[in-house]
Write a protein that binds this DNA or RNA. Structure first.
Lengths: 225, 225
DNA sequence: TTGACAACCGAACAATTGTTCGTTATAATG
DNA sequence: CATTATAACGAACAATTGTTCGGTTGTCAA
C-alpha cells in the first residue's frame, strides 16, 4: 500500500522550510540539532532566538513536536515535503532457501536469532505482520507462482491461514514425494485447492493430510541489477 | 542483497545491553535520552553517573558515538543485536500505472514533486540508484516478465542502459501499435532483443527505432494480503 | 508622518545536562 | 584478614542549551 496523500499542506515560509530540512538531515545523521544550530540554518544570525517563533509555527502546522526545557528535544514528524518522518524499519532474518522440490533448508538457529543474514525493510511493506522471516528462492521451480530465481519471499509464521492467502506449503504427492510450492490456499469441502498465482496455470487439489503450511507469504521482493 | 553477517560480536554486559536497548527505543520515538535517563534504564540509580563508563565501553565496542559536552548527542550505530541502526529510507514517488499495452499513464506532475502517493523503502533495497520512481502494474499483461497485477515496479530514469538490464520499454509494432513491456534489453548487431524474464517465453527482436527505453527496473515488489 | 504590528536581534537569566572528583561498597586476590 | 581493584554513588562544578525580555528595524495602513 502506498502512503497517504499529503497534497493538502500548509505553506511553509523559507525559514520554516530551512529549519525542517536542517532538522531532517541532522537527525538522519544521528541526533537533533540545538536551537542555535537551527537558528543559523534558518539564516537568523548566530544567536537569533527568534527561532522559537519558527518552531512554534512548525508545531502548529504539525511538522514537529517540541519538548519544553529539554535540550535537543525536537521530534520530527514530517519532512518538508509533508511526508511522515519515521524511523521504523525492521530486520527480517533470512533463515534459508526454497529450492526446487526440496524441503526448505531452514538455517540452523543459533543462540542469537539475529546472527545470520537479514534484510532491513520499512514497516509500510510489512502490513503489520509479526513473526516474519525471509527465504531466498533458488532455481526456477516457483515460476508458476510468478517467483523467480533469486527472489526473496517474506513470510509470517502466524498460524491462522484464511482462504485465498498465499502460502508456502509442502505437498506430499501420491507417490510419497515431497515438494514445496507457493500457492493460494483454499479449503473447500473436504479438500485443499492450491491455486497458482499465474492465472494461466491450473490448480492442484489434494487431501488436507497431504499439505503442510509453512507460513503465509506477505511480500515478494525481486532485486534486479 | 542481504545485510552483512554480524555474528562476530563483542559481548555486552547487562547494563550495556540495557542502555543500547533504551537508546534504540528512545531514538526511534524521536530523540536521544539524557545520561540521567540512560542511567536509570541501566539500573544505575537516579543520578549514578557511572553511566559514562558504560558509554565509553559502548564507544570502544563500536556501538555508539558520543559527542563530548553536548546534550543528548549520542549517535546509535548498531542495535543490541549488532545490526546497523540506520535512518536511511527514501520515499519513491508513485508516478503512475503500467497498463496492458497502453503507454504508461504518468501522473501529472504538480509543482510539488512529492505531492502524490509514494512508497518508503530502505536504502538497502535501492542499490544506490538515483532518479527513482515507482509504477503500479494494472492487469496481467506483464506476466511474461513475472510481474503480476498490483505489483509495484521501481525504476530509475538513469539513461545508461547496459546489455542484460531489465527495462521498461515501449515498442512500436510493425502495425504501428504501441505496447509497453518489461524485458531484459540486449543490443546486438543492429537490432534489439527483448528477452522476457520467464525463460519459457521467447524473445522479441526489433529495430532500435521501434524501441523507447523508459527506465531501468531496479526492484519489483509484490505485497500480498 | 505616525502608529501599530510583526520580524528580528542580543544579552541576561534559568534550567537542563555533562563532567569531575572524592567516597563508599563489593568482589577478587594474596 | 589485609589489600587491591573495580563498580557504584552523590555532590559540586562547568558547559551547554532553552527562555525571557527589552530593544531595533522595517512594513503597512490610516
Amino acid at each position: 500500500m502506498p502512503a497517504l496523500i499529503f497534497s493538502i499542506m500548509d505553506e511553509l515560509t523559507q525559514a520554516e522550510a530551512a529549519v525542517l530540512e536542517h532538522l531532517a538531515q541532522h537527525i538522519r545523521r544521528g541526533y537533533c540539532p540545538s536551537r542555535e544550530e537551527l537558528s543559523r540554518a534558518a539564516g537568523l544570525g548566530p544567536r537569533g532566538y527568534h527561532i522559537n517563533k519558527v518552531l512554534d509555527s512548525l508545531v502548529a502546522k504539525g511538522y514537529i513536536e517540541v519538548e519544553r526545557n529539554r535540550a535537543r528535544a525536537i521530534r520530527l514528524l514530517r519532512t518538508p515535503d509533508g511526508r511522515p518522518f519515521r524511523l521504523e524499519t525492521r530486520w527480517i532474518p533470512l533463515v534459508g532457501h526454497i529450492v526446487a522440490g526440496l524441503p526448505a533448508q531452514v538455517a540452523v538457529q543459533t543462540d542469537n536469532p539475529f546472527a545470520g543474514e537479514a534484510i532491513e525493510l520499512t514497516e509500510g511493506l510489512l502490513g503489520g505482520y509479526d513473526n516474519l522471516y525471509a527465504l531466498r528462492v533458488k532455481g526456477q521451480s516457483m515460476i508458476d507462482a510468478l517467483v523467480n530465481d533469486g527472489d526473496t519471499v517474506i513470510l509470517t509464521s502466524t498460524i491462522d491461514i484464511h482462504n485465498g492467502d498465499m502460502v508456502a506449503a509442502t505437498v506430499v504427492g501420491d507417490d510419497g514425494q515431497e515438494s514445496r510450492t507457493l500457492k493460494h490456499y483454499y479449503r473447500e469441502n473436504g479438500h485443499v485447492r492450491l491455486q497458482p498465482a499465474n492465472p494461466m496455470m491450473d490448480a492442484i487439489y489434494c487431501h488436507p493430510s497431504q499439505v503442510t503450511i509453512e507460513g503465509k507469504v506477505v511480500l515478494v521482493i525481486r532485486q534486479i541489477g
